[in-house]
Computed example of a mutant assay.
Amino acid sequence: MALYPLTSNFEGDFVLQLIAVDTEHTMEEVAKTAAHHSVNRRVADRPGHGLRVRRQGSTEPFPKTMKVADAGLLPMECIEVVWEAPATAH
């Protein structure tokens, strides 16, 4: 377990945030950490929506349960945190 610095580019925010996460945090925890710095500050909340983390420039998010230590991210690397639409019931 170690603190790990990442840069967060949160969807809809115009400010890049430096966030400190733990190498044992999951991507879901990383998304929540990033949201703390953006949602209801410069970005409106989207009730019912989830959050996903992906490497900047990628279209595929990391699995929610993947740990920072397993993601291959470099210190200070920029991640994108994007809204995920709620699942629709059929």
Rank of each mutant, 00 (worst) to 15 (best):
D45V: 01
F10S: 02
M76F: 14
K67Y: 07
K64F: 11
I79Y: 05
M27H: 13
L18W: 04
R41I: 13
L6G: 06
G12W: 11
L51W: 02
L74W: 06
S38M: 04
A44D: 13
F62M: 11
E29R: 12
V81I: 14
I19T: 07
E28M: 10
G48H: 02
D70T: 09
V53Y: 00
P86K: 08
Q17L: 09
T23K: 14
G72I: 13
D13Y: 07
W83S: 04
V68Q: 00
E60M: 12
E60N: 09
A44N: 12
P63I: 05
P61A: 07
E29G: 04
C78V: 14
A35K: 01
A85I: 01
V81L: 03
M66S: 06
Y4N: 01
F62H: 12
T33C: 12
L74S: 14
M1V: 08
L73M: 14
P47K: 08
N40M: 12
A89Q: 13
E77A: 07
V30E: 03
V81C: 00
R46G: 06
E11N: 03
V43G: 03
H25D: 15
G12D: 05
T65I: 12
A85Y: 07
P63H: 09
G12N: 09
C78F: 04
E80L: 03
R55C: 02
A31N: 09
A44Q: 13
Y4L: 02
Q17F: 13
R54Q: 14
R42I: 02
A31T: 05
V68R: 02
E24M: 10
T26K: 05
G57F: 01
E60R: 15
A35W: 06
T59I: 01
H49D: 12
W83A: 05
M76R: 10
L6C: 04
V15T: 12
R54K: 15
A69N: 12
C78S: 10
K64N: 08
V43T: 02
G57M: 01
P63K: 13
R46I: 00
H36Q: 11
A69D: 11
A89Y: 11
V53F: 00
V30Q: 06
